[in-house]
Design a binder for these strands. Sequence first.
RNA 1: GCGCCUGUAGCUCAAUCAGGACAGAGCAACGGACUUCUAAUCCGUAGGUUCCGCGUUCGAGUCGCGGCAGGCGCGCCA
Length: 552
Amino acid sequence: MIRKKIAAIIKEAGDRCVQKGIFPPETEIKPIIEIPKELEHGDYSTNLAFSLARSLRQSPEVIAKALIERMDFEDVCTKVDVAAKGFVNFHVRDEVYRSALKDVVKQGVESFLPDVGEGRRVLIEFVSSNPTGPLHVGHGRGAAVGDVLANLLRKAGFDVVTEYYVNDAGRQIETLGRSVYLRWKEIRGENVEYPENFYQGAYIREIAGRMIAEGLPIPEEEPEAVRFMARYAAEVVLVGIQKDLEDFGVRFDNYYHERTLFEEGHVDGAIEILRKAGYLYEQEGALWFKMAEKGDEKDRVIIKSDGEKTYFASDIAYHSQKFARKFDILIDIWGSDHHGYIPRLKASIEALGEDKERLKVILIQFVTLLREGKPVGMSTRAGQFTTLREVMDEVGKDAARFFFLMRKSDAHLEFDLDLAKKTSNENPVYYVQYAHARIESIFRLAREEGIDLAEGSEADVSLLVLPEETELIKGILRFYTVIEGGARSLEPHRLTFYLVELVGSFHSYYNKVRVLKNEVSLTKARLTLLYALQQVIRSGLEIVGVSAPDRM
RNA sequence: GCGCCUGUAGCUCAAUCAGGACAGAGCAACGGACUUCUAAUCCGUAGGUUCCGCGUUCGAGUCGCGGCAGGCGCGCCA
């Protein structure tokens, strides 16, 4: 909110320079405002003078001075100066921060959230793991990123729908059915050869056993039995996945089944559109999509020569449906091993006549679990991958979610299981939660002394004169910048970084400054500051989906 | 072979809307702080050729080109 004021001040000064003929009339005043790293460089700065220097054929310093001379900054800043040969530095009045704090306390932290979305409709599709086995840690990371991004975008004014795409039509489901079928035969005493590419996990046998225990009417003939078991197993696995997700704090608005794409004719419909638009051709009995001319490496098959449609075909139909469902922005969250798929999907969206820029793909890099500093083996082939459930059981939901968001999603993540369980400042989750609990503890004692927080908004915040206090207020206000930046760049991990940093300055303040047992007016002022701080921490943790305990 | 991602302190990572001021944290190391609102905390010290080279620019960790190293992808698989 202060940033906007600074921007207005610069703009005004720039316009005046144009009016007075100091800058040529066509000069565009689009200031980039940043927060300097060095405190001495003020609260905000702009490099506008540098960017104008070339077109104005003037030194940045001269331009900067011309700007400042025509600047009305008194209301917001104590001083504005030129540094380092052209940077314009703004030193904001402490009162401005204090009154911003007052606004936040009075109206609530959330009432100042930036409206980035302006009501635009966003569909976030994530996890979308095939219902052929339990979720592993990689899916967990995707789930955390997707869920937190959804929370973040909602706070930032988007109309968000989350969706899980269930691949229940393809080959893998058939393999699942066959896997169960073989284990079923095995349990009944038959000798079977179990192929390596079948699902290896113990859950396959369990499902087979369960079918027997429940006395289900299993068809006589093998093809029917396989189909029956595929359906049954997919259902069981999906329910398990949903349970895992729920315990992980992730709830989807929608489950979209691939099968419905076929049943409702959307796959044929999409193919028809592409055919009419001239993107398809037949060769060697298969139907091909002309991709090479659309930016992909080569042409791709949509219908195989055996008549079966490829995964790609249903994906085109699915995304076509997403557009048909009137979403402004589509966000897909995939494992980074699918990155080669992006040009293909974007090309097909373009071919369907939609704007491919409206699809944003977020790639999730792999997770390496560490125990005692060593990577934990995760070979899928042996069926001994680490499941999300195991990690959750071991470190808890809060730590798991927080840890998944401690790196930007396209970077490898090392997940230190021992660290996630530690209850010390080394563990960022506890570090943040502890700050929340600590503040609450101060409030409890204050109440015992008869100082009620409800009076907080009447406190005299002008008593908050310590530099640490101004820094804390700045930290609180930065929440809005982080939400805005995170929503714009689709980077939910910024939130965890922010929280750790914010809370760090609180712990430091706590050790240095007494809140209670001062003059009542000063105590109240400081309680007010902590009140706003706690609200921000709680709101931030809520977005991340981590609990904010009152006691630890 | 071609394409995408990554390379920053011993380790794990930052560096804000695609270039800004002296590259910042945490951990580990070392030295300190509990008769005080929760020590699950804090304060201090030390730690760097931002993988290498060239280029663009007033200015490069950031942009371009060329290397080097690692990960991933390039199927009528899903």
